[in-house]
Design a protein around this nucleic acid. Structure first.
Length: 519
RNA sequence: GGCGCUUUCGUCUAGCGGCUAGGACACAUGCCUCUCACGCAUGGAACACGGGUUCGAUUCCCGUAGGCGCUACCA
């Protein structure tokens, strides 16, 4: 085998939003291409005109752009192996179908769908193959003149691949090794239909991969059963010497229960199954997307990369560059992987915390607006500063980074809501409130409010000094109850800092409100 | 039903004949602490089953069972 430049492709059907499993397949292709300095091709397989969905192609392109998976050529990316949309390659396929016909490796079949259905009902496990094709209406069973007449009359037909039975066909799979199947169990697949003058997947796929000089076919395991058919097609065309190598990836399975991952699982457990939000043009239904849910593209990429592959070390956090460096098809696992969306959340947590808090501001700002909070520059700056200190950049005494339990920017709101709004109610069902608000507490808080009112310079240092002096004098430990007043529950930063941030007026106001309503 | 692929903690997985079977997520506990977290530490948790091969099988082979996929004029 000559040393050809590595060329791989991702070739989706534009039938809707891109499933997360498809994203992973594309990612593996991309990693492989980059690692080998090869090309990554984007091809649209729209040979089934009835399933075409407008907007799907644009959606797919946008999704990969967001994820940082880049194509070198293909639909919308240029290149000199085009066109890259199969519906625009009709004439090419016709030529190759004719080549097979002329060589006696394919034949015309005139059986209508109704006739085929009838046959399937009549014979259990009917298969259109060497055993049965002579009983059917095709150019092998009918005389030549009849076939010519039918075609001349414009009768609808399909072209079927004539599979020679009794041969063990071998597929050399990078992940699974040698896979062999006897050609007798294969049926005479339809390669082309006159109705829309388009080939089916199998023919188009082989012709395109050959013409586009694809060297490696990395695709989902659902294609493994038809891989022998593809091998036979390469042979029939005389392209066996440049046939691509195959790698069939394990499938993504449901988080729980049996079967492969579906959109319903996402709805059920509350995780997206699509990279981007999708608005169905027919039904208007909206499906959640990773991007809109607040996932970072690096996190999605990292998570997906490790679902079915691992570097063989304990390293789990890997950038695209590291993935490209370490990726290895032969280390892919062979069995299906349950989609562990909880781990996906953990990856997002990791990547979110790697980013400086200032980068969260635009996203956080959206939340503030949604909550009806006027976000002033001063306030925003103050909050970011607070977050930087309290949330990520605050170093504890062991020198470890303080990390909030934040997986998404949106998790921030319930954790720091009290910076913006006073507690509206004090929930006695809340363990913290019940535990820390005793009968004498209102009185105590009233006294504390008095101490605070007397402070002129309302800074962290001053507040701390005054309150601690009062604590020492009275033997009181007001922090938890004070927290109930200002936060409403057992959350938030150091009380002195919180009070200073809220300011004297707001602090006292919140304390009064709590005293009144909690008595 | 037929054909193919597959089978290590609940989950993702490491292991490529000899290991106290490792890591991560999740879970539990402890430490830290004015709260919640974070962080740190600790813990429970797996080789589907039955035959071989071998001095020795999680590892190799064969069965069985389970899982997954394909079985369209869909991809």
């Amino acid at each position: 085998m000559s040393e050809r430049k590595v060329r791989v492709r991702f070739a989706p059907s534009p039938t809707g939003p891109l499933h997360i499993g498809g994203v992973r397949t594309a990612l593996y292709n991309y990693l492989f291409a980059r690692q080998h300095g090869g090309d990554f091709i984007f091809r649209i397989e729209d040979t089934d005109s009835t399933r075409f969905v407008p907007g799907a192609e644009e959606y797919i392109i946008e999704a990969f752009k967001w994820l940082g998976v880049e194509f070198d050529e293909g639909v919308s990316f240029g290149g000199n192996h085009g066109p890259y949309r199969q519906s625009e390659r009709r004439d090419i396929y016709k030529k190759y179908v004719q080549q097979l016909l002329d060589a006696g490796k394919a034949y015309y079949a005139f059986d209508t769908p109704e006739e085929l259905d009838a046959k399937r009902n009549e014979i259990e496990n009917f298969q259109y193959d060497a055993q049965t094709r002579l009983q059917m209406r095709n150019s092998l069973s009918m005389d030549e003149a009849e076939v010519k007449r039918l075609i001349a009359e414009g009768a609808q037909y399909v072209v079927r691949f004539k599979i020679e039975p009794g041969r063990d066909v071998h597929v050399d799979d990078i992940i699974r090794g040698d896979v062999s199947i006897n050609s007798s169990v294969l049926d005479d697949k339809v390669l082309y239909k006159s109705a829309d003058e388009l080939p089916t997947y199998h023919l188009a796929n082989i012709v395109d991969d050959h013409l586009m000089e694809v060297t490696h076919v990395i695709r989902g395991e659902e294609w493994l059963p038809s891989a022998p058919l593809h091998v036979l097609l390469y042979e029939a065309f005389g392209w066996a010497d440049t046939m691509p190598r195959f790698a069939h990836l394990p499938l993504l399975l449901k988080p729980v229960g049996n079967g492969k991952l579906s959109k319903r699982d996402g709805d059920k457990f509350g995780f997206p199954v699509f990279p981007l939000e999708w608005h169905d043009p027919q039904t208007g239904a909206v499906s959640a997307g990773y991007r809109e849910q607040g996932y970072l593209p690096e996190a999605v990429v990292n998570f997906l990369a490790l679902l079915g592959w691992n570097p063989g070390t304990d390293q789990e956090i890997m950038s695209m560059e590291e993935l490209i460096k370490q990726f290895n098809l032969s280390k892919c696992s062979k069995n299906g992987a349950r989609f562990d969306y909880v781990k996906g959340i953990w990856f997002n947590h990791q990547y979110l915390l790697q980013r400086p808090a200032t980068e969260w501001v635009p996203e956080f700002d959206k939340i503030l607006r949604a909550e009806g909070i006027e976000s002033t520059p001063e306030r925003e700056a103050a909050v970011v500063e607070m977050m930087k200190q309290k949330v990520i950049e605050f170093t504890d005494k062991e020198g470890n980074k303080k990390k909030r339990n934040i997986s998404f920017v949106s998790d921030l709101w319930p954790l720091c809501k009290f910076f913006f709004v006073a507690p509206e109610t004090y929930d006695m069902e809340d363990k913290f409130v019940r535990k820390n608000w005793k009968e004498t507490t209102a009185q105590e808080m009233d006294e504390l409010a008095g101490v605070l009112t007397a402070i002129d310079n309302f800074t962290v240092g001053e507040i701390k000094d005054m309150v601690e002096a009062w604590c020492e004098a009275t033997g009181r430990k007001p922090w938890n109850a004070w927290r109930v007043c200002l936060v409403g529950t057992g959350q938030g930063p150091d009380m002195y800092e919180l009070a200073a941030f809220l300011g004297k007026e707001e602090t006292i106001r919140r304390m009064d409100a709590a005293i009144k309503s909690l008595v």
